[in-house]
Design a protein around this nucleic acid. Structure first.
Lengths: 127, 127
DNA sequence: CGGAATCCTGCCCGATACTG
DNA sequence: CAGTATCGGGCAGGATTCCG
């Protein structure tokens, strides 16, 4: 019977797909990615604005994060070619499709973070 | 005027809260955390079952991940104190409240991963 | 102001071996 | 089967400096 035209191609692609999924997941899990996406979900922002809003992120890491997000088509880079330089970043359509999920995750974290961690130090809001 | 009983306590707590949120976010962003939560969202599982299902995770990293998730109250550890050893892990109530979010994120990733990454190598599913 | 390039360090995580 | 201990490479990511 000509019943097995392909050895195990599907399984192979499943593996590949999972590999990709993991890679994307790893990207999203990078230290600043979620914060950047969350920030941009408010609308297009300039580099400096992003830095100020996120807080604690270095210039390098911000740029690096933005580059990676751009490379996978989650954000767009708009260079207004002015002087002094002016650049804006915005979510792409794909980015917009992701942002609600990220927002939801962030909301969950903000809601539950307090109960999950031991009190760091002198928290004012005791018992 | 006795108008400022507190210096900047609210701002301080906001900072603390954000700090915690970031810590929790960082935890969730750890390499295997989301995969473990996703796996456990199908129900309680034994250590070996988790290892098999996730695939690619080392014994050490699995245990380490489970310990951390347990320490923040996202999962429970049940030791049946048998021999040979039998241990099960399950989501706590808090874990269950998180799992839908994680699932959603994973679904998004699985849906979009294909278009986001350059073809790794010889993908069968071309054009 | 936005970005690139370089150096450097911590720690993440994988491999291995051992215990109960 | 579940878990711990140890070692080591690699890379994430921070600080700094220079460029348009």
């Amino acid at each position: 019977m000509a019943g097995f035209p392909e050895p195990t191609p599907v399984a192979g692609d499943v593996m590949l797909a999972e590999c990709r999924a993991r890679a994307v997941l790893a990207l999203l899990a990078e230290k600043w990615v979620l914060l950047v996406i969350e920030a941009l979900s408010e609308g297009p922002k300039r580099t400096s604005a992003l830095r100020r809003q996120i807080g604690g992120i270095s210039e390098k890491m911000l740029i690096q994060t933005l580059r990676r997000l751009e490379s996978v088509g989650l954000i767009d880079r708009r260079d207004y070619r002015e002087v002094p330089p002016r650049v804006e970043y915005a979510l792409t359509e794909r980015g917009w499709s992701l942002s609600p999920v990220v927002i939801t995750l962030d909301r969950w974290v903000e809601t539950h973070a307090f109960d999950m961690l031991p009190t760091p130090i002198g928290s004012t809001s005791q018992a």
